[in-house]
């Protein structure tokens, strides 16, 4: 664990909590792309299946449970509890144009052709484009509430910090994961705008 990864995880956690609280307190999900939130829930589900198979640390396990819990809670709030405030007309990004190519790429380019590894690779590729429906929705509505921009900033910051974490780990541990790094660069670039 290094400072970049810890601050990255905390920034990610902050983004997830900011969004959840915003929807809960305002009792509205106006301006929020439900499709992006579904994609994030899918990212966490496919990435954290190893919760069932391996224990790395209390921090690792608890953060994974919190991420999965909050992402499904957010999806629930958007599509169930505050469904009336969901702006489906502007949330019109065709997510199948993301999921299908990402799924294909995960089968073609991965570290190991095993189910868990392919699902992990799928989640890495999907996470790098999961925000597109949200960015698309903001471009259509032409506006983003202040809290949504804070959410996007924290979310963008998290993967940018992970890039520094990977530089750190390569330099000090000789460790690097090209798939995570390339997807992380793509993800960070998408947030820059």
């Amino acid at each position: 664990m290094n400072v970049f990864r810890l601050t990255g995880d905390l920034s990610h956690l902050a983004a997830i909590i900011i969004l959840l609280l915003k929807i809960w307190k305002t009792r509205s999900c106006a301006g929020i792309s439900g499709k992006s939130q579904i994609l994030f829930a899918l990212v966490f589900t496919t990435r954290y299946l190893d919760l069932l198979t391996s224990f790395i640390s209390l921090y690792n396990t608890s953060m994974k449970v919190i991420y999965i819990g909050c992402s499904y809670a957010t999806v629930y709030l958007i599509y169930m509890k505050f469904r009336a405030t969901y702006d489906g007309n502007h949330d019109s990004f065709r997510v199948e144009f993301l999921v299908v190519p990402v799924g294909g790429l995960a089968v073609l380019i991965n570290h190991d052709f095993s189910p868990l590894e392919i699902l992990w690779t799928f989640s890495i590729y999907l996470e790098s484009v999961a925000i597109l429906p949200q960015l698309f929705m903001i471009s259509k509505t032409g506006e983003a509430e202040t809290i949504t921009t804070h959410y996007l900033f924290c979310l963008g910051l998290y993967r940018a910090l992970y890039l520094f974490n990977w530089i750190w780990r390569y330099y000090f541990e000789g460790f690097f994961d090209m798939i995570a790094i390339v997807a992380g660069v793509v993800q960070t670039v998408l947030y820059c705008d």
Binding site: R5, D9, H12, E117, W120, W166, I179
Partner: peptide
């Protein structure tokens, strides 16, 4: 950590 991927990361 397991083969390849950075599985100790979130």
């Amino acid at each position: 950590c397991p083969l390849g991927g950075s599985k100790d990361e979130l």
